[in-house]
């Protein structure tokens, strides 16, 4: 690239993409929480949320057995009530081939966190090899982490080049670029990283908030900042980018609030699982539980729902 030798500064980037006022954006998202979603709208929202879940297990103790039951849950979240399947299961690369046995050929896709998840602190060559291996094993989607160190030290070119290399390694697989918002700290940085990523990924690839492995995960605030970045990028270039908040979204009420943010920021065309996902595990059961409550009129006990798992 014919650019100056010095790395582009944050200042130049913000002059380009604009900044975010932290208090203002938090006031904005607080209003989503006051929306009241009832009756049919609630059922629609809950079912939509189910279809957007990337049902996730990312534990050192994951086994083929655990992945099998995760897949079963993804395909059929509940035994009654005609609950739709989730968008995907999300597993470590080593588990992709086990997941493939259960969900290949179904509506449920296989997502895998490659690129030395969650830190990304492995040589690029290793990370790319991991991506290729996961895709070869049947992953439909790759969740990568960005090089936060490169970003924070202003080496935007390096950060973008690595994303571009992963895009190439993905082949036909969809890419989700994890910004790890908690490590970027400010909304300004989240907006900046979103733009840098969006400029090198393909239409309907994702940007994603978090790995779920740090103290702070998806919040309405960073979800909003990323949605607004997606909106601005789309309006300027016509390239639609998808969004995935991940980590910390455990209740149906939370998920509906995130979806309200999508509805009121992005409009109808982002209200589908091609454009919006939830990286979650416990969330699914709460969605199902609330759907059952709506169907039966009775509040549900947690033990009526299988795989009531904890953590991300």
């Amino acid at each position: 690239m014919p650019v100056a030798k010095s790395p582009p500064s944050f200042r130049r980037l913000f002059d380009d993409i604009g900044t975010v006022d932290a208090v203002g954006i938090e006031e904005r998202v607080a209003k989503y929480g006051t929306r009241s979603v009832k009756k049919k709208a609630k059922v629609f929202g809950l079912r939509l949320a189910v279809t957007m879940v990337d049902l996730t297990t990312l534990e050192g103790k994951d086994t083929p057995g655990k992945v099998a039951s995760l897949c079963a849950k993804a395909l059929r979240p509940h035994d009654v009530g005609e609950i739709p399947p989730t968008a995907a299961v999300c597993v470590y690369p080593a588990m992709v081939r086990h997941a493939a046995k259960h969900v290949k050929g179904t509506a449920v896709r296989i997502a895998s966190v490659a690129t030395a998840f969650p830190s990304g602190q492995a040589p690029l060559k290793t990370r790319l090899a991991e991506v290729r291996a996961a895709v070869a094993d049947g992953a439909d989607e790759i969740d990568m982490v960005i090089n936060r160190g490169a970003f924070l030290s202003g080496e935007f070119g390096l950060m973008q080049d690595e994303i571009a290399a992963v895009v190439e390694a993905c082949g036909a697989a969809t890419l989700k670029v994890i910004l790890e918002t908690s490590e970027l700290e400010t909304y300004d940085n989240i907006r900046a990283a979103s733009f840098l990523a969006m400029r090198v990924i393909r239409p309907n690839d994702f940007i994603k908030t978090s790995t779920g492995k740090t103290s702070a995960n998806a919040t309405l605030g960073n979800n909003q900042v990323m949605l607004e970045a997606i909106r601005d990028h789309f309006l300027a270039t016509g390239v639609p980018i998808a969004m995935k908040p991940a980590g910390g979204i455990r209740t149906a009420k939370q998920a509906l609030t995130f979806l309200i943010a999508v509805k009121e920021t992005m409009g109808d065309e982002w209200l589908n699982n091609g454009r919006y996902r939830f990286g979650a595990s416990a969330l699914l059961n709460d969605l199902v539980r609330q759907l059952e409550k709506e169907r039966t009129g009775a509040y549900q006990a947690p033990w009526n729902f299988s795989e009531a798992s904890e953590g991300y």
Partner: peptide, 13 residues
């Protein structure tokens, strides 16, 4: 390049 669509896909009751 395009405009957003704020339609009635998901209307609040």
């Amino acid at each position: 390049a395009r405009e957003l669509v704020f339609g009635d896909l998901w209307e609040y009751d």
